[in-house]
């Protein structure tokens, strides 16, 4: 049985499956790409042929139009495909709508590229399914034992308590436009918040798409047409880069919140000027990374990006061989790229 090292290689463009002739989440345009999910650091424009879940393809089309790939091949969970000499399956990763792990088999050897994933419940996507394998390729965004995400319901309760304490102030929550935003809305709905939720312009297209793909979000309104009075005591969701900038001036004495796993560390919240940190993440925390690796039972784990030092150290203690791939271009917070709107331009 060939070791996955011999057929799954790290090239400058990304992770390359040699017998299948395709890249997984490549950083530059390639001939053939398999995409795990729609976040900008994984799904980049300009590939000729793209294989992904139907939801991921829909997200890519919504975000990059023509750039989503000249030939698009949708593959549902449960389907099996032969690509070259390799069989491929896409298995839910629990990260965002459409997110998938890529399960590859070649000559009896199986590797799983998990993309980004989480184990916490998320009403907007299918839960992660562990697949036993010879090599498990994992992210390590939050791979330090200080990262243990609390129950998101608890974090949402903090927001609602703050609204009760400051009913005249707009509560603006910074959250990624893809995934976090919609998950937050479903969490708010589950907590009983049935009032309209206001959205920054950047959040609207993907919320519409989620609803089209069967994720109900309740009543959503644009934050831009709302007047200040309407925004008193309202919840507004916006990209993280907008919450403390000029866009936020339209809001009524805003309380700035930010929903991110990084908010667990105070200095992170402080440098962002966040008043209400909400520790809600779409990535696996430290216990879940380790639990997942134990569940898939792989003797060898490759770490794509993040804190590989801590994870590889912890794995060594359990007799698992860890290897840091140092893939570039992954883990770049996708919101950070949202530029400030130029002066006089219509507000997003």
């Amino acid at each position: 049985m060939p070791h996955p090292e011999t057929w799954l290689r790290v090239l400058p463009d990304g992770l390359f499956c040699e017998p299948g002739g395709f890249f997984i989440d490549p950083v530059r345009p390639v001939e053939r790409a398999v995409i795990t999910h729609g976040h900008a650091d994984h799904a980049r424009p300009g590939h000729r042929s793209v294989l992904a879940t139907p939801e991921t393809l829909a997200i890519m089309r919504a975000r990059m139009g023509e750039g989503a790939g000249a030939a698009q091949q949708a593959m549902r969970h449960g389907e099996v495909l032969r690509q070259g000499e390799v069989t491929i399956r896409l298995v839910p990763a629990g990260h965002v709508l459409g997110s998938a792990q890529v399960v590859m088999e070649w000559q009896g050897s199986r590797a799983v590229v998990s993309g980004d994933y989480k184990r916490q419940a998320d009403a907007t996507c299918l839960p992660f399914e562990p697949v036993p394998c010879d090599v498990f390729v994992t992210e390590a965004t939050f791979a330090l034992p200080v990262f243990r995400h609390p129950d998101p319901a608890h974090e949402v309760a903090k927001l609602l308590k703050s609204l009760a304490l400051f009913p005249e102030r707009t509560h603006v929550v910074g959250c990624y436009a893809l995934g976090k935003c919609q998950r937050l809305i479903t969490l708010l709905r589950a907590a009983g918040w049935d009032r309209p939720i206001h959205l920054h312009g950047a959040q609207q297209p993907l919320c519409r798409l989620y609803e089209e793909l069967g994720v109900p979000l309740g009543e959503l309104r644009p934050a831009t047409v709302a007047n200040k009075a309407e925004l008193r005591g309202a919840i507004v969701l916006a990209p993280p880069s907008a919450i403390a900038d000029r866009w936020a001036r339209r809001l009524a004495e805003p309380v700035t919140a930010l929903a991110s796993g990084w908010m667990r560390v105070r200095q992170r919240a402080r440098t962002r000027g966040v008043e209400l940190p909400m520790v809600i993440s779409d990535h696996a925390d430290w216990p879940d990374l380790n639990r997942t690796i134990d569940e898939v039972g792989a003797p060898e784990v490759w770490v794509t990006h993040g804190r590989d030092d801590a994870l590889v150290h912890a794995l060594a203690g359990r007799g698992i061989r860890g290897r840091a791939l140092h893939l570039v271009g992954l883990g770049e917070d996708e919101d950070e790229a949202v530029a400030e709107a130029p002066e006089g331009a219509p507000a997003a």
Binding site: F147, V265, H313
Partner: peptide, 19 residues
């Protein structure tokens, strides 16, 4: 090792221990 890496990342000792 994990405690040292964590302390290095978080900065503040009390916060590191709490987390």
């Amino acid at each position: 090792v994990l405690l040292a890496l964590s302390h290095d990342y978080v900065g503040d000792l009390a916060e590191t221990v709490a987390l």
